[in-house]
Each structure stands twice: as structure tokens, then as C-alpha cells.
Simulated scan of single mutants.
Amino acid sequence: MRQRWRVTGALAGALFAVNVVARVIIRVGFDDADTTAADRVSLGMFVVIGVGLAAVAFDWSRRRPAAEWGADIAAAVGVALALTVLVGPLLVGKNPFGDGAGTFFAQIWLYFAVTGIGVLLGYLLAVALGLDHRSKALKRYAESKAAKPHRSVRR
């Protein structure tokens, strides 16, 4: 159980680290007037987060039931979201609520959308290829039923 939470915490830390790197790049590399460049870096951050979560969901769905890894990913995303929205702006010297409630909640919805799409794509790819935990269990069941000889009929 302890190892399970370490992996979940590491995933949350990695998601937050991607956000911190993007914020530092925006802060150091561009001035405040250049919003186009900041938007491109933010888009790149969301692509990295989505693709990363798709890879994690694909990998975890191959080894564990969906209810187990889904809860771990949801916990990691929740912690990473809280850190990203509340702590991330403080690291670069901004107020988390400085741009208004609309921007604050837009960040939350965008983060949930990107992470949800990433996890869903990774899981659906595993299911489509028949590599997820449930598909493997069903395949083993079908093979075991086909391997047993038929019982003789008694009269």
C-alpha cells in the first residue's frame, strides 16, 4: 500500500513539475506583453501532461484493474491540480486569484479536460489493442474453458 501511494505522489509531482517548468519558461523567457508565446508554452505544457497521462493510463491498465489505477490517477490529478492552481503562480511571483475568478476556474476546467482526455485515450488504446487487465482476464477465462475436455454424457 505504501508503494502505491509513492507512485501516485510521484505522478502528482511530475505533473506539477511540468507546470512549474512551463511557468518558469514563460516568466524568464518572455515579457508580460507577449501573450502569444506564453499561450504556446501553455499549450505545450498541456500536450505534455495529456500525453504523459495517456502513457501512464496505458501502462497501468495493462497490469491492474481499472478501479484501482483510476483511483490512483484521480488522486494524483487532484493533488497536481491543487498545486498547479494555488502554488504554481506563487512560485513565479503572481497571485493565484490575481486575474479574476473566471481565469482561475478556466484553469481548473482546462486542466480537468486535458487530463481526462489523456487518461481516456490511453485506456481506450489499451482496450482497443486487447492489452488491458480485463481483456487479458477474459482471454485467460476463454482459453481455460476451451482447454477442458467435455464431460461424458451419462444415461
Rank of each mutant, 00 (worst) to 15 (best):
D31W: 05
V127H: 01
R62T: 02
M45C: 14
H133T: 14
K136P: 14
A128K: 06
A146E: 03
I49K: 02
L11Q: 11
G102H: 12
D99M: 13
A74Y: 03
R63A: 14
G52V: 09
G93M: 04
V119W: 00
L110G: 10
Q3T: 09
A126F: 00
V51K: 10
F58D: 02
A137C: 09
V79H: 08
R2Y: 02
D32M: 06
S42G: 15
R62K: 05
L90P: 00
R155K: 01
S61Y: 00
P89W: 13
V24D: 00
G70F: 00
A55N: 03
L125D: 11
A38K: 11
V7S: 15
A54G: 14
R134D: 12
I25K: 00
V18K: 06
D31N: 14
L138T: 03
A54I: 15
G88I: 13
W60I: 09
L138V: 14
K136F: 12
G13C: 03
T84M: 15
G116K: 13
P89K: 02
A75L: 14
L53Q: 04
K94C: 08
R2S: 12
R23C: 13
F112T: 05
M1R: 06
N19L: 05
A128I: 01
P149C: 04
T103G: 11
D39G: 15
V24Y: 06
R134M: 15
W69Y: 10
V114M: 08
G13F: 04
F46K: 13
A76C: 08
T8H: 11
A128P: 01
A54F: 03
I108Y: 10
W60S: 06
Y123M: 03
S61V: 01
V41F: 14
A80Y: 04
S144P: 13
L53K: 06
A142L: 03
A101I: 15
G130R: 07
A67Y: 06
V48L: 06
S152K: 07
A14V: 15
A22R: 01
A55E: 09
P89C: 11
R63V: 08
F97K: 12
A126P: 00
V119I: 01
V92W: 01
V24M: 14
A17M: 05
A71H: 08
L131W: 04
D72W: 12
R6I: 02
I108H: 12
N19R: 06
A101C: 09
R154I: 09
G13V: 01
V7H: 06
R140L: 05
T115C: 05
G130M: 08
F16S: 13
R63N: 14
R151E: 10
R151L: 08
A71S: 04
R63I: 07
G98Y: 05
V41R: 04
A74F: 07
F16T: 01
M1N: 11
F105G: 04
R62S: 11
L81Y: 11
P65I: 00
V47P: 15
A66L: 00
V77P: 00
V153A: 09
R63Q: 13
W109M: 07
G118E: 03
F97C: 11
A126C: 12
L125W: 05
